[in-house]
Design a protein around this nucleic acid. Structure first.
Lengths: 110, 110
DNA sequence: GTCAAATTTCGATGACTGCCGTAGTATGGC
DNA sequence: GCCATACTACGGCAGTCATCGAAATTTGAC
């Protein structure tokens, strides 16, 4: 699971999804449900690569995927994640917001 | 930094070190300082591989290394880590204790 | 100075992973 | 049924990483 979160691309997906909310709160209209489709998450990679990352996240239990017409909606599994790893997702998201693009840089102490 | 923690071997190192304490509390006798030497951390890999992992952790800012005679003592940088990524290390350590060896397994939801 | 112990560095190797392009599958509209 | 859209699966390629073995370095003891 940490491995799934260790990739900057997947981290961006998780971060974006966290802003969209989850399916646990299915309120609103028809098309305004929580979660985001794969195309909703801006990724500077090809669709096939994006699918790969979504797959890794899904297999790690980080996200859920449910079909919705021609699109597939992705939603974070915050509740499950929080139960398995208390505070981890929250800590990671906080860190992402504080360091938007430095997650993979080698930051030496000196 | 997440990448450094994503490896089960390094996760074990961090977990072991967290039990040994840090150098911030240098009390006691001469040889009973906080931190652990490389050999103190049981790893099922060769010494050179262990060095590699310690190096990755050090470059990621997760641990400190200070020479102590023929041995090298490693200690967690809890304070620094907590300042940069609030709650992250704690969440990871909690997760490790709850799932000692399942950190890398592919846990499918179904 | 010599020996011993702990750790590091270098080179090599196998596996994994991120990336892409193309073809295929599933759903909705006409 | 046919087409368009959204996503997935497969094959391939290059880069990175974990792992090891052997030699080198550093420090302490005699």
């Amino acid at each position: 699971m940490l491995h799934a979160l260790a990739d900057p691309m997947r981290l961006r997906i998780v971060h974006t999804l966290s802003a969209y909310g989850e399916l646990d709160a299915p309120e609103g209209g028809d098309g305004a449900l929580a979660g985001a489709t794969c195309s909703q998450v801006p990724l500077p990679v090809s669709p096939s690569t994006a699918t790969h990352h979504f797959r890794v996240l899904r297999e790690a239990g980080v996200i859920n995927q449910c079909y919705r017409g021609t699109a597939k909606r992705n939603c974070l599994r915050r509740a499950d994640l929080d139960a398995l790893f208390p505070g981890l997702l929250d800590a990671v998201l906080t860190a992402v917001e504080r360091r938007p693009a430095d997650e993979e840089r080698t930051e030496r102490s000196g």
